[in-house]
């Protein structure tokens, strides 16, 4: 049967399929292109880009946990000019749908990156990262307070007419409150969740295992947390949600769609299986079909309480 994997998102953003490479796990594009046809993915969200280069956190930067991965990279990146000069042309040439993940220490820095990407050929959307747990100043704090989340989203909104999604933290009492704030500030979409803040201990050296002390947990361990946040946020805002957190299979994708996500991001599993995203895309039609759906959009939100469920035309599931 013909299965429609297309995803239509605000401001004319259309994805060929709902599987997006998650920011921070896929570099700036060229790194994985030997293993993955990056043009065949729904989109690629590149590693966080700031106005000036960021050094990142001291190593060690990763630590394995049961079914999870703790990282403390600290948003190391070469700055927006190097990204535009060195990586964006490659992404364009490969036909990738590019989401630029933007970061800053101040509201103004976020706005500067947004403004720089405006009109830059090949940039399809922005993802405002207000939720990285590995940055002490700026970064995460914007995602922990509705007023600050509003301010930074507003500034980005005014700097660009690109589609804007805001990436939420699970490390707050109510992600839904933050989601409502960024929706009011003009965000077109929400992406959720960023990593869950955690700590590992290096017993041999009697100290925290990561150079940055705490880190962000990703991988299958956080999938239930992510689903809970997507499910809550979907009932609190009317803009689309890009869900992520521990997705490793097409079956996982369907869970996120049913919980209210319109598309998904896949990250940590790529470290084990570079080709897994393409495999998920290949297997998604069968998984949707088995679930009784004819396309991606028909599945979105179908596990939500009836009052929050998107309207579906009869027989369009």
């Amino acid at each position: 049967m013909v299965m429609d994997l297309h995803v239509s998102l605000p401001r004319g953003l259309t994805l060929a399929n709902p599987v997006i490479a998650a920011s921070g796990t896929f570099g700036f594009g060229p790194e994985y292109s030997r293993y993955v046809d990056i043009g065949s993915l729904g989109a690629v969200s590149v590693k966080g880009v700031s106005p000036e280069p960021w050094l990142g956190n001291p190593p060690p930067r990763v630590w394995e946990t049961p079914m999870g991965l703790l990282n403390s990279i600290g948003l190391q990146n070469p700055g927006m000019e190097v990204f535009v000069r060195d990586d964006l042309p490659f992404l364009r040439e490969k036909g990738a749908t590019v989401i630029v993940n933007i970061i800053g220490h101040t509201v103004d820095e976020y706005a500067r990156v947004a403004s720089r990407m405006q009109g830059e050929a090949g940039v399809a959307a922005l993802e405002v990262n207000i939720s990285c747990p590995n940055i002490k100043e700026g970064g995460m704090s914007f995602g922990h307070d509705p007023e600050q989340a509003y301010q930074v989203t507003r500034a980005v909104r005014q700097a660009t007419d690109l589609p804007v999604m805001v990436k939420l933290s699970p490390n707050v009492t109510s992600p839904a409150l933050i989601a409502q704030a960024v929706e009011q500030a003009g965000a077109d979409m929400i992406s959720a969740i960023n990593t869950v803040v955690g700590l590992a201990i290096d017993v041999e050296h009697r100290r925290p295992a990561l150079g940055g002390t705490t880190g962000g947990l990703s991988g299958p361990a956080i999938k239930p947390i992510a689903l809970r946040v997507v499910y809550d946020v979907a009932q609190s805002v009317s803009i689309p949600i890009i869900g992520m957190g521990g997705i490793a299979s097409a079956a996982d994708v369907l869970e996120f769609l049913l919980a209210g996500a319109s598309a998904v991001m896949v990250g940590t599993v790529t470290f084990q299986h570079p080709g897994r995203m393409q495999q998920i895309i290949a297997e998604l039609p069968q998984v949707l079909s088995r679930g009784g759906f004819r396309g991606v959009s028909g599945a979105v939100g179908q596990a939500l309480p009836a009052a929050s469920r998107p309207q579906t035309r009869g027989g369009d599931l």
Partner: peptide
């Protein structure tokens, strides 16, 4: 040697000063 993530340069985990 360093604790390593992706192994191909994408994740920036295995860095040294």
């Amino acid at each position: 040697e360093q604790r390593m993530g992706c192994g191909i340069g994408a994740c920036l985990a295995c860095v040294v000063p």
